[in-house]
């Protein structure tokens, strides 16, 4: 189990490899990574702010809840903050389970909760200025399925 909130980039391939290594009892590993997307074609960079302390405990709570709901052998969440350029990886989730249904469901659950319940705020800096990214109704709606 791991939760890491960090400014520096992470090596997705190395993290996924290390996560998957050395287990003989897990039949399924699911990994997801989120990438900074330039939706307008003018994004220079993104600034991600977070609430140190609460961020770690909120994500820790999500991981605990995922473990209660599904049969998981392991779980990893890495989320960055600070300045990120388009194409950089913002975060990753990895889940390991004996069977793939649990690994996929837990990863989706964690993703949905990270979107709207982990205290991060994104600001986009483009050629025309800086703007806080507004939360989407559909992200809030997505929590209802859990």
């Amino acid at each position: 189990m791991g939760v890491r909130v960090q400014q520096e980039p992470f090596d997705f391939a190395a993290e996924a490899e290390a996560f998957a290594a050395g287990r003989t009892d897990m039949g399924a590993i699911v990994t997801f990574t989120g990438v900074v997307r330039d939706t307008s074609g003018t994004l220079d960079h993104m600034l991600i702010e977070h609430y140190p302390g609460m961020t770690e405990s909120a994500i820790g709570g999500m991981v605990e809840e995922a473990r209660r709901r599904w049969s998981l052998g392991d779980c990893l969440v890495i989320h960055r903050y600070g300045r990120l350029a388009p194409g950089e990886r913002i975060m990753m989730v990895a889940t390991a389970a004996p069977h793939r249904a649990d690994a996929f469901a837990a990863a989706e659950f964690l993703m949905d909760y990270l979107k709207s319940r982990a205290p991060f705020w994104k600001k986009e800096l483009t050629a025309s200025g800086a703007e806080w990214v507004a939360a989407k109704d559909e992200d809030e709606e997505a929590l209802k399925r859990w």
């Binding site: 979107k115 705020w121 990214v133 507004a134 939360a135």
Partner: peptide, 10 residues
């Protein structure tokens, strides 16, 4: 106590 807008993680 902390005040903030709706969160935009992920």
């Amino acid at each position: 106590v902390a005040f903030f807008p709706p969160m935009t993680g992920g």
